[in-house]
Design a protein around this nucleic acid. Structure first.
Lengths: 343, 343
DNA sequence: CATTAGCACTCAGCCTTTCGGAGTGCTAAT
DNA sequence: ATTAGCACTCCGAAAGGCTGAGTGCTAATG
């Protein structure tokens, strides 16, 4: 329980927050009274609201407007007041329907899940694909595209496929490439991609192999093939936030789109969620990203066995419908976990 | 030469168009005179401009504003007036620098080219990847992900990689999958993907094969693997158009983003360019897409040998800097052509 | 002593009015 | 044919006024 926060204050704070979430407009004392059947006069509510402003839970845009919740208020709301709802049948249905893999690209699955999140929540859906690095190696293939050009195809245990084009110094025959792939496949079987990388470096030191032209080349090739790629982030439903009144103004739209364009900052934030299993919530500045001003992020992790694979979530305004969205994110993460489980 | 269009009218029309391209504001008779050193009075210019309005080349937003060019004017400008410039050294440099394949994903190459287009033109870059269908088959691979889940990896001659997750009725061993892939690879070698599909259907009719469980299953699998995927369209630099004054208003931003989200309409338009080699220009409504109101599209095709592979281009406002952008699109298309050429 | 009615006060948002400037079309002079 | 001159139009910014929602304070009330 928060100091200086009796039952009545909590009720009023809750009322303000919930009304503000639905209307996006400052809430006045009268509105609290009429919309929540409190047997109090607006004057009393005004007194309480003034108090809540003093303690930092409410703020007023200007003297004669109603009050709006501060980040502190949302935090308190989520930690102490919020009754987390459940996911509607129809929404569950939609998420489930979209969570199917057959006939899709692996990336396509993540994109689809991201779309599901955005469509059900009406905010932006976001899915960070598993870091390729922490995945288990499954297979490598080299395909000769041209005289000096090779396509490397990497497949991980979870089924992610990456491909890289590699330019060579000299021509290599297709049969040679096949041999190289065979050699690498047997050597690297069952290692994590991270381990693969260090193994390749170690092998390259090996005197015997150094003088075997084929193997030396194979290692050089594979080294390029495993070069770190930018982790993939699927953000969908950006146009959803266009309809929110707080982003009606062109300047704010700009800044949000700019922010979503450079995904690296977001990735850092999402990565930090990998350590914290379950649902995480970042309200406004809690994310320490200035691109997230006025926005909140709800995340959850999807796993495979004991391994945390990745993070997904919803980005919306700070006044987002937490009681609805939290269970949606939770449910979707569980669905994706189930989906990725190869029995 | 256009009827009723003498030298002076052309000069004035050109002046209005070029000024409007740089300022985005209606151009008055005075502005034409002062900014273009014409030895004519503004009154004369006014007369000419009134004439140009009659013939449909200019329009005035209201009585006491200057004139803005119509689509007809842009069309005339491009067909008859425009001195197509060349690409600046520094811009060529940037495009060239970005057009490199090593270490990239195949899709990554197209995305990068799209980014190059947007960054150099300051509008939106757009690249349609080659239609998988018209590509030549190179290789198929099946990887067993789990008891009833198989990952199919398709590689085309050009190096595009597609992967599909396929759910099976029953478990299939990895060695079986290998055999299936071998069978398909030898059968389908050198066909176009379109031919592959019909070949598979035909084979499935074959009585002998019908009763060979392995082969029958292989065909069923491959059929799913070759199921049409949405063609890929890479649109980059959407935030560039935020800075254009004509899209400063929130409503217009919305509509553009909505339009870019559903890429299918654009794909149809781009597909139509596949037939017309070289640079194509669609001014405003010429694209017959209402999502392109007020926007123009400049495209060019990239090829491999005699085959047209795909289309790339730039989307900007109708008042875009054609003399700059046309050579950029042209140059980039040629770079991509060169890039994709496997010697 | 907590609660409430009453009241003066504030201020964003909207509407209206005003006004200047940029640009036009027309006419008469060159 | 060209141009100077002039009356006219109309956008858009600036300024003023009004309204209504909402506040804080005070004094009355149970």
């Amino acid at each position: 329980m928060h100091p200086g926060m009796n039952i009545r204050s909590r009720q009023i704070l809750e009322a303000v927050i919930e009304d503000y979430i639905t209307t996006a407009e400052p809430i006045g004392s009268g509105a609290v009274r009429s919309r929540h059947g409190l047997s109090l006069s607006s004057a009393t509510i005004r007194n309480v609201m003034a108090e809540l402003e003093e303690t930092g839970f409410l703020a007023s845009p200007h003297t004669s407007a109603g009050r709006i919740p501060t980040e502190k208020a949302y935090r308190f709301y989520i930690d102490s007041l919020l009754a987390v709802g459940s996911v509607d049948r129809s929404e569950r249905e939609e998420i489930r329907k979209r969570c199917c893999m057959t006939g899709k690209d692996v990336d396509g699955v993540f994109r689809e899940v991201s779309q599901a999140l955005s469509s059900v929540s009406h905010y932006m859906g976001i899915v960070a694909a598993p870091r390729f690095n922490s995945n288990l190696f499954r297979q490598i293939d080299f395909i000769r595209l041209g005289a000096r050009r090779v396509l490397a195809i990497l497949v991980s245990q979870s089924g992610s496929v990456q491909n890289r084009i590699i330019e060579l110094q000299e021509d290599v025959a297709a049969t040679e490439l096949q041999k190289m792939a065979n050699y690498l496949n047997s050597m690297l079987h069952g290692l994590t991609i991270a381990a693969v990388k260090s193994r390749i470096l170690k092998e390259m030191e090996n005197e015997k192999i150094r003088y075997d032209n084929l193997l030396a080349n194979a290692l050089k090739l594979s080294q390029q093939a495993f070069d770190e790629a930018g982790a993939e982030l699927f953000i969908e439903g950006q146009t959803n936030i266009f309809d929110l009144p707080e982003f009606a103004d062109a300047e704010k739209m700009k800044s949000i789109f700019r922010a979503m364009e450079q995904k690296s900052q977001l990735l850092v934030l999402l990565d930090s969620c990998l350590q914290a299993p379950g649902v995480n919530i970042f309200i406004g500045s809690e994310s320490h990203l200035n691109c997230m001003t006025g926005m909140s992020l709800i995340t959850s992790t999807y796993v495979s066995g004991r391994n945390t694979l990745g993070v997904l979530g919803v980005i919306g305004p700070t006044r987002m419908g937490y009681s609805k969205v939290i269970p949606i994110v939770d449910y979707t993460a569980k669905m994706l976990t189930k989906l990725l489980h190869n029995d």
